[in-house]
Design a protein around this nucleic acid. Sequence first.
RNA 1: GGAGAGAUGCCGGAGUGGUCGAACGGGACGGUCUCGAAAACCGUUAUUCGCGCAAGUGGAUCGAGGGUUCGAAUCCCUCUCUCUCCGCCA
Length: 423
Amino acid sequence: MLQVPFLRQHTALVKERLAIKLFKETGLVDEVLALDDERKKLQLEFDTTQSKVNGASKEIGQLMAKGQKAEAESKKQEVAAWKLSLEPISQQLAGVEKKLEETIVKLPNLPGPAVPPGKTPEDNVIVREGGNKPTLHANAVPHWDLAKKYRLIDFELGNKITGSGFPVYTGRGARLQRALIQYFLDFNTGAGYTEFLPPFMVNEASAFGTGQLPDKEGQMYFVTEDKFYLIPTSEVPVTNIYRDELLKESDLPIRMTAYSPCFRREAGSYGKDVRGLNRLHQFEKVELVQLVHPEKSYETLEEMVSHVERLIQSLGLSYRILNLCGGDMSFTSAQTYDFEVYSAAQQKWLEVSSVSNFEAYQTNRMKIRFKDAQGRNQLVHSLNGSSLALPRIVACLLENNQTESGIELPAVLHSYFGSKNIQ
RNA sequence: GGAGAGAUGCCGGAGUGGUCGAACGGGACGGUCUCGAAAACCGUUAUUCGCGCAAGUGGAUCGAGGGUUCGAAUCCCUCUCUCUCCGCCA
């Protein structure tokens, strides 16, 4: 969430920036400031009286020790009166604090300086493109047909076992998943990221920390019995590793990578986009998370983009990188680059990675701080990115590399997959 | 799942109603000493919200949340987690 002192000092700028994100309720900013004023007023009132109570209580203790019972008793009467007056104040204070919290979390993160204006995905700026779109043979088919032909993925079986959006990978299809996960993790650890294997369910505090709650509650699967959320991405458990931690400046940057399945309800998504591997309720993903010095976060964002770009290049896929416009960015992000790979048989671009700088938006919720050279505690900046989400990568690998006689896999996967192709 | 024990600062660990944000030990940091280091000695060593130009000063925090009391780390209740034993189990 945003920080109140910043809202106070840069009120006009904040509203201007929120407008870039197409956020209409800028009145919430004023509401936050008013609530904060109210909070301070009440706290001063409370603290002053509480201070008197504390002082008198000490005196009572001393009087009792000296055996001056009568004096102690009269003090008690005095304190009782103060305490009575304290009650409504503390109730009001708690109410105002709650309201302040509820209001400030409704404010999305501010877009960073390099975010282009715009309303829809059409307004996203293509930063660069790479790789070559393949020319497919005349009988080329989409990945769902290839998956069937080579018995790699059984969508119907997934329907039977669970429901739509839960495919079963079979034989070489399953092996390909494992090969990709292993390759991606090795690629990341080779670049200095530490590997984690996090829990696949998180508690409410963790889901709140990265911003899934309260904003996206309906998009997560929820285990009512234990009040756990199935993770929509390993960003959630991995970033929360450092929740409520005070780091040393020398601990930064912290670079983490993790594989996990991702569970998403995708409520409200129907139609052609859900065909095959395009949109699933459960999918595999390898994620990158970094916690960095606030002055370094945009530099880190570019570095992470290059890292993911190299990974996609190594797979030989045709890709493009988009700088998301204000209207298409997520609630919590300050700047996001999306990676899309070209699905040759479907003839469309599929998003396979999203790399974002959250600045201090998540870390303010999670209280991830470090002690700077002056001894002050500052919030670190958090970033994350997929490297990569598997299903659409698999779709493109199958479609783009199909030949009349089989599917030729990129060289980097040969040893992981145990074969150069699928026939 | 059953029975019991516990949760204190960076770590260990005292503290069972009063002046305790918390003894003591260790670690870390700064200093003295040294050519340098070790040792020794001295000092510092939480977070957070206010008020104040500042010096400074008030509130909160001993797993979390409630309660009792003039006063709670200490007593009571609820929850979470950890450990031991039993059960179950990959």
